[in-house]
Design a protein around this nucleic acid. Structure first.
Lengths: 343, 343
DNA sequence: TTGTAAGCGTTATCAG
DNA sequence: CTGATAACGCTTACAA
């Protein structure tokens, strides 16, 4: 049986409260007492019972990170950053995979074992704007991503429209005129796809370039596979294009694959830019230009906001700080796949 | 304030025990009572306080998964599988990143907050055979990977020697004779590198082929970057080679990159095979042959063993089942990068 | 089938 | 600076 505070107190000849004080680094404990207690702790191999502490304090030191799948590189890198940031503030992370499933995501918002985690970092992919009523939850939650806006939660995201426009301009500035778009979700009202497509169209319009709708490829999933397939269709479609803007790097890497298979060189005659700046992109061949979405900053801000909310604790709603929306900084990263300027 | 069982009991006009019975799906509860209690639960929005339950039962329903980094694709895919398997048996997963840091990994074994998780799935990368004494811990732990053998823990791994030999034979059978090896860790006594290199050498010897030591590339880290660099050195070294066996897929993908940059075609004149069978490998160009290490099976077995250990609970050591070591099944996956047979 | 009551190991209050 | 004691909300003998 593991030792308890009582055991330590007995051995050290002090009260249980004093042991607690030592364990929790309470300031007003005499050096002598502290040492005596510490000795007893070491001798018994005592460790605090976290469950008991949790019950008493109503906190667990745990946050949940709910995301679609770790298999998706973007989310793996995000989780990596979130876990690191959480550790800095003494929190541990429970990773939950929703597989972008609506039912799963809904359950998360409704039936969460309320006492298991102090708060939730949620990156929805199945739920959308039409489910906004589900997001009025009574536990601390910070939203990530672009599926839902205007919900009563803190939200960390990036300016997808602007960033996509910047990527598009990057292509336009290098003389590309017939730019294909990979990853469109027609009919969708929210989400990264919609926003990035909007940015693409705005940048094209601003440059006075028409968008050839035959070059806008619908690709529901954004995996390599889909980028590869869509690019093959593009090639077989026979409509000329000189550049591809893929709405994420996985699509772009798939596109590079297909272009290669078809012996079409990159960046000339076809340039490619992606979005997400995955580690892989720097080692693709050719190396892939992309948009760095500020993942580290997103993780840092999200954890910070969540911790703040948790600290607000039982405050009545009126005293809480207003909902915050933070836009992380993006950056266009130029690599080989766009390193050519056309006449 | 959140409702407690007491509140529910009061509203339903039953005792707290009955509420507990309903919540825990105890069999012998009359239909009428169950419904009445359920109504009260719904009305109050009651949810069990997990901390209280944990304190009482001594369990948390949590397992820790300690791995180097989620950024490494292999571990992201492993975590994905582990989380899915854990969910099936009603467990949640706390992901901890060690960054392959010895101090961090040591701390994990020593100062683990004992009551926070029911058990630990540990994939060490910093610690090695010389630290075997650290692995005698008194909480349920299952080891993953190839860093430590013979420790008093259940261990799920794969037959690296055989699998590497199989990959090497795959190259030899296709007429490759001058095979380069990427990712060697000279001087290391344990670990994937050592075992896979052993398998490579055994297969070469069995085929009567000499190993040209100039084609054995030391590469401490196994990232794309290192595979790319090592391959560049290989090319600049001027020693002829007709195939590369990279000890993981990231190295192999880096190798493909460098070969491409140097306009050396794959699989002819140079074939490439990797190890891990990452999702990415199926979409590399050319698609990458690899060794599927049975990741799903590893996750499934590891979770199962851990659950069994947890269930043993307080049994005295003599009554526990002996330590198990499970070898997952591997499989050589042939793709384009080795799809050529030399004269 | 349901109720009573005793803890689980902490932390917090309040007195000393 | 330290001690006694009362919760925290639940599960589980045991009793009815």
């Amino acid at each position: 049986m593991a030792a308890t505070m009582q055991d330590v107190a007995l051995l050290a000849g002090v009260s249980i409260k004093t042991v607690s004080n030592v364990v929790n680094d309470y300031k007003h404990v005499s050096q002598a007492t502290r040492e005596r207690v510490q000795k007893a702790i070491d001798k018994l191999g005592y460790e605090v019972n976290v469950s008991a502490r949790n019950l008493r304090t109503g906190r667990t030191g745990l946050i949940a990170l709910a995301l679609p799948e770790l298999k998706l590189h973007y989310f793996a890198e995000l989780a990596d950053s979130v876990i690191s940031e959480a550790e800095k503030v003494g929190m541990q992370v429970l990773v939950e995979q929703t597989n972008s499933d609506r039912a799963h995501e809904t359950a998360l918002l409704q039936a969460r074992p309320r006492h298991m985690v102090d708060g939730v970092l949620f990156s929805p992919l199945g739920l959308g704007q039409e489910d906004i009523h589900l997001f009025s939850v009574d536990f601390p939650m910070v939203l990530l991503g672009e599926r839902v806006f205007g919900s009563p939660n803190d939200h960390v995201t990036m300016n997808n429209v602007e960033a996509a426009a910047a990527a598009t301009r990057h292509l336009i500035e290098r003389g590309n005129r017939r730019i294909a778009l990979l990853g469109s979700h027609p009919g969708e009202l929210v989400g990264s796809a919609t926003l990035r497509e909007q940015g693409f169209r705005e940048a094209m319009a601003a440059a006075g370039l028409p968008v050839d709708e035959r070059l806008v490829m619908d690709t529901y999933y954004w995996h390599r596979h889909n980028g590869a397939t869509a690019t093959q269709q593009l090639i077989e479609g026979g409509v000329e294009f000189d550049a591809i803007f893929a709405m994420n790097d996985s699509l772009a890497l798939g596109a590079l694959h297909t272009l290669h298979v078809n012996r079409i060189e990159v960046p000339d005659p076809v340039s490619v830019i992606g979005f997400d700046d995955l580690e892989d992109s720097a080692y693709a061949h050719p190396t892939l230009s992309s948009v760095d979405p500020g993942r580290e900053q997103i993780a840092r801000d999200a954890v910070r906001l969540l911790i703040e909310r948790i600290a607000e604790g039982a405050k009545p709603p009126v005293e809480r700080r207003p909902v915050q929306r933070i836009l992380a900084d993006y950056r266009v990263v130029e690599r080989e796949s766009t390193a050519v300027t056309r006449a």
